Simulated assay, not measured.
Amino acid sequence: MATVIAVVIPCFRVKDHILDVIARLGPEVSQVYVVDDACPQTSGDFVSEHCQDPRVKVLRHPRNLGVGGAVMTGYAEALRNGADVVVKVDGDGQMDPGLIPLFVAPIIKGQADYTKGNRFYDLAQVVRMPARRLVGNALLSFVAKLSTGYWNLFDVTNGFTAIHAKVLRHLPMEKISERYFFETDLLFRLNTVRAVVVDIPMDAVYGTETSNLKIHKIFLEFAGKHLRNFSKRIFYNYFLRDMTVASLELVAGSVMLLFGLLFGGQHWARSIATGTATPTGTIMLAALPTLVGLQLLLAFVAFDVANMPRRPIHVDLPD
């Protein structure tokens, strides 16, 4: 039986590009869900009036929920209509719909549960990316490795994605961030169910469109959410679901490093205040737990990197 592929296109201020994006969708796509997220340009009405593609269904939000909220509305509709794989493509024309078969192939072949684009594979193409966007994405990607546990991924804010419907049904959709943190939060949720995620090399297209994502405005918000997800992931994976030698390395390393820094800092401050030299034994008592604690934490990180999901879960999930 043929795989039913659905495409979700969130729409907010993309009226100038949306029809071209839809027109470039290939015959492998069976369903198209255009989600008007209370767009001030009424993109949904524009598509309804000017698009004759029978695959297209327009969904509308009475109020703006953000890109994540729009995508999840499309996800829910695709699941209700029996989609096997759901692809998310932005409506601003920065993503090539012709790449959809590449995103879907690893999922159909049972090699991945979720695929996402990565614009950093080809260094010749990276130089085309605006400098501020390049630096911002690089920083966000590094922090996301810590919070999501997918150390092999990059370009985590890339919105060109595909997911197997079985995996989608197992995610707590009501808990996933509805706005720009959506892609990263979804990766965190995928890690909690041990889903396999694969990067797909792609080139970005930069034309007359403008991005609604302003890195400097959401930096603090993202930082807090990354810290929250990192804490949850560590607790879920290393204390609630399972305890391994890495759990002991994390606890012992944290305690020893904290003790060494506090003890050493206290005596260093006292030495400066009194003008007296700190005894060698005291220095060693601070330095030894600091170094050992740091080594244990590095060993934990190495274990965490090696502990990424390897077997796709959708192959074992019931229909």
Rank of each mutant, 00 (worst) to 15 (best):
P172W: 05
V156K: 04
E174K: 14
F182L: 07
N158A: 14
V205Q: 13
L186S: 05
D155N: 13
F182I: 04
Y180C: 05
A165P: 03
M173H: 15
L171E: 04
P172V: 12
D203R: 13
P201T: 10
G207L: 12
P201D: 08
L186Y: 03
Y180P: 02
P172A: 11
D185C: 08
S211R: 01
K217N: 07
S177H: 15
H216T: 09
R189F: 08
D155W: 01
T157Q: 10
S177A: 15
E209G: 04
T157Y: 11
S177N: 14
M173I: 13
D203L: 03
L168Y: 06
L213H: 03
I215H: 08
S211Y: 01
M202W: 02
K217R: 14
E174F: 07
T157L: 13
N212T: 15
N158G: 15
V167D: 01
A204P: 02
E183P: 05
H170V: 07
D155A: 10
A162L: 11
A195N: 05
I200E: 02
F188K: 09
L190I: 11
D185Y: 03
A204R: 12
S177F: 14
L186P: 03
A162F: 09
T210Y: 10
T208F: 08
R189S: 10
L168T: 09
F181R: 02
H170E: 13
M173S: 12
